[in-house]
Design a protein around this nucleic acid. Structure first.
Lengths: 212, 212
DNA sequence: ACCTCTATGTATAAACC
DNA sequence: TGGTTTATACATAGAGG
């Protein structure tokens, strides 16, 4: 476009590169907006100029929302791919993985026959149900896993507390045994590191249960 | 461009909207690529079709890098704004978008007007979108919450370990001080309650990161 | 639904200010 | 550096297969 045909390579002249950048940036933004409006889709565009300045366009109120959506999208894909390719390790030393094979197979099949467009209403409804089921299962497993992790952590913490108390008692006994003898540095350590720590996790757990 | 001038509003005819989408998506991608190459800048473009499919272009090897860069950029801006304003509390590192009042209000409204039966297709689709958005946000928040909880637990646990070690050392010192004097019940307690405990939580965290 | 064709609207390179 | 002009390349709407 313009007087001359353009080579698809970096413009070496700094000035005209800058000029072109400015012009084309505007054009791109405009077209992005048009696509979003005309076709009623979400579009996000971000451009970092070589001097680090950011230019962005987003059809949603905040580009953050689209990024969030993107993040989730990608994460879901990664999750699917990971569980699809032979439950990659992340089980090592883990509470019973509850990983039955059913869902993966379904997802696999689903991903393979990607021609969703060609399904009819009934088939789509069926597919929707299946996917919904898988999603529920996945979410449930995730929650379960996290809960187990939290519980394990809590138990270990209780053990630690118990042991600590024991040691302290032992020490106290020792001290009173020799109390007339000499007096060491008896600076306390009596204070709990966090007095509400015991309450924290149950609260968290409960809150999370109510979240879903 | 084309036979007729185009109105800047949603194309109502579904077929031509779809066709336009396909054409313009290609054009936009091409122009994004051109901008990136010609002007030697980083460009990221993502498009969500109304059926949830994602189309993306990125000049960097991974769009993730650009997202990372974007995140940092935004965080810096927020930091700047925070120190500029009266530290409005964006909840440290949390995307501000999740903090809007929207979801609860929407759910409230939704629950109040329960006569779903009387909604038409368009309204229902809109509702579906909104609910989907809320669901995503909720899931994200839940994960975040759990991660924070785990982190807190881990930190506390480290504190406990540290304190325990301290007490034990103190005790050892005491013991050697009076060693000729008398011998108490010096049964060990030396064994770690769980030798792999230190490794456990990082593993858990990592696993969970991969889960989503 | 997808390709081709083509008339026409747009974007923009280069030139000038 | 930034706006205006102009010639030209490009993108694409609409039609037809």
């Amino acid at each position: 476009m313009g007087r001359g045909k353009v080579q698809m390579k970096r413009i070496e002249d700094k000035t005209s590169r800058q000029v072109t950048f400015s012009k084309r940036k505007g054009g791109l933004m405009k077209k992005a907006r048009e696509l979003a409006v005309l076709c009623d889709v979400e579009v996000a565009l971000m451009i970092f100029s070589d001097r680090g300045r950011l230019y962005e366009f987003s059809s949603a109120e905040s580009i953050g929302k689209i990024l969030e959506r993107y993040r989730i999208h990608v994460e879901e894909e990664i999750a699917v791919r990971q569980s699809a390719e032979k439950g990659k390790r992340y089980d090592a030393g883990f509470p019973a993985q509850l990983m039955d094979t059913g869902p993966q197979q379904m997802i696999q099949r689903y991903l393979e026959e990607q021609n969703i467009e060609e399904k009819n209403m009934i088939e789509l409804t069926q597919l929707e149900k299946e996917l919904d089921m898988i999603l529920r299962q996945t979410r449930f497993k995730k929650t379960q896993l996290m809960m187990e992790g939290l519980k394990a952590l809590q138990e270990e913490q209780q053990n630690l507390r118990r042991e600590k108390t024991q040691v302290e008692e032992e020490m106290a006994a020792m001290r009173s045994d020799q109390n007339a003898n000499d007096h060491h540095q008896s600076h306390a350590l009596e204070q709990e590191s966090n007095p509400h720590a015991n309450d924290y996790t149950p609260q968290l757990q409960e809150a999370m249960l109510h979240l879903f």
